[in-house]
Simulated assay, not measured.
Amino acid sequence: MKKLSKTLALLLALTMVLCLAACGGSKDALSGTWSADLGDDGVITWTFDGKGKCTMENSYMKQKGTYTIDEDQLTVTLESWSDPSTYTFSVDGSSLTMNENSGYGISGTFAKK
């Protein structure tokens, strides 16, 4: 009986660990809504869903798209863009810095909303 109790306790503990592991880790660093006033481009708002879909919005338009992350490289494809844009990015607390690698595109530091 004592051996059965230990085995049952071990199985229960293992199940709890697996459940906790399944709950965490799926959210990426960009998940959320980020906004900045970028001067001539106006207020730009990015929303990343943590699962590879995003939107970019300003006073002129709202576009849906997709994104991927590879270390500090963010690749975004929006519906009206002919080619994806790749950014070097970093997140520091509630600040997201995105620098478009070709030097053309939307670059700046965005605050988490």
Rank of each mutant, 00 (worst) to 15 (best):
L12D: 08
E100A: 11
W34G: 06
Y87Q: 04
L78R: 12
L4R: 14
C19R: 05
T7S: 10
K51Q: 11
V17D: 04
S94I: 11
K51Y: 04
M98E: 00
T75I: 08
D40A: 13
G93A: 10
T86N: 00
L10E: 00
N101F: 00
D28W: 00
A36C: 05
E100W: 04
L10Q: 06
Y60M: 13
D28M: 08
N101M: 14
M1G: 13
L30I: 04
K51I: 05
K3L: 15
T15L: 14
D70L: 04
A13D: 01
D70G: 07
L78M: 14
D70I: 06
V76F: 03
T55Q: 01
Q73I: 12
A9T: 08
E100D: 12
Y60P: 08
K64M: 08
G105I: 08
A22Q: 13
D49V: 05
T97A: 01
A13T: 10
S59F: 11
C23H: 13
A29E: 15
L10S: 13
G105D: 09
A13N: 05
E79V: 07
S5C: 12
G39R: 01
F110Q: 03
S90Y: 06
V17L: 09
S35V: 06
D72R: 07
D70S: 12
K64D: 15
A13R: 03
S82Q: 15
T45E: 12
D72S: 14
N99S: 15
S80M: 11
G105N: 10
D83P: 03
S26K: 14
G103T: 02
A36T: 00
C54D: 00
I106H: 04
S94D: 15
E71M: 09
S102K: 05
N58E: 01
L38A: 10
V43L: 15
A21P: 07
T109E: 05
L96W: 02
D72W: 07
M1W: 15
D40I: 11
W81R: 03
T33S: 15
E100G: 09
G39V: 02
G32I: 02
G24V: 12
A22F: 13
D37S: 13
F110M: 02
I44S: 05
M1N: 15
S5P: 00
L20I: 08
T47K: 12
G25F: 00
M1R: 04
K112C: 04
G52F: 07
T7K: 11
V43F: 03
G65S: 04
T68W: 07
D72Q: 09
S85I: 11
D41E: 14
F89T: 02
D40M: 13
Y60D: 14
